[in-house]
Amino acid sequence: MTDGGTTEERSTLRRWLDSDIVQSSPFWLPPFLLMGFFVYAAIGWNLLLSLTEYSGFGDPDYSNLGLHNYRAMLDDPGMWAATRNTFVLLVGFTVVCLIVGLLLALLLDREIRFSRSFRTIYLLPFALSFIVTAQFWRWMYNVNNGIVNQFIGLFGIGPYNWLGSPKLVLGSVIFALVWQFSGYTMIIYLAALRSIPNDQYEAARVDGASTVRMYWRVIVPQLRPAMVSATVTLVLFALKAFDFLYATFDGYRPRRGADILATKMVRESFGRSEWAYGSSIALMLFVLSLGVIAPYLYNQYKRGNL
């Protein structure tokens, strides 16, 4: 056939147009481009900015790139304090949240009347803005007539300046954040508990396990995947917790002892207009998050959960 070539070509084109990737692209491509630009292109841009000396007003100068910001980080004592505080917050907040959430979930998983109402109340703080909850906790921690001081006053302790003392401030912030996030952990655990088949409870019963032992040996080990995903979310939150600290301390600078990388990053950029330096801290935050996300996503992919 003389026109074999063209029909062949046409059918290849046709085939390509009919293929699922092309057919489905109108659906995922626009959201992907929008998201991709704002997330991934922005991260790339941020990397570029962190290599400049951009500060103050005007435009960044991209012609002279270098690692000076990262070197400056090493000499910045505030940086070390912020890093240390970030890790304290991260570990303290995550561990306590996981434990409190697990206990709440186990309590609620025991054929409780009104368990829905309880659940709704425990999760309520999570539905509120950090700016809102920060107001409540400022009032709770208030030195003169805050509830916390009044409560411990009953036992003859205190009063303490919870948000003012560098020794107490981080613990106080963690406590308030646990209040706000433990409901979230509970929900994650509850969903996992509900998906455990009933026979397992019964089988453990038949095997003669006590309630506590049954939970400890049979049920809790199965909550591992739930714990992993809750941990990822909590760690990532702890890394970027900014809103709460900003609202608690009325601005970019948290009280001494409570500065974390997230607040320092925003302060350097938007408080002091040290854009390039801020970007380099931001990049560090991103790398830290990546250290948590990448293994998690890879693991999810391996298990076919993606």
């Binding site: 941020n46 925003v266 854009w275 801290i281």
Partner: peptide, 10 residues
């Protein structure tokens, strides 16, 4: 999971 801090300056 990307922290907003990592994109906020750009």
């Amino acid at each position: 999971f990307v922290p907003y801090q990592a994109v906020i300056v750009p």
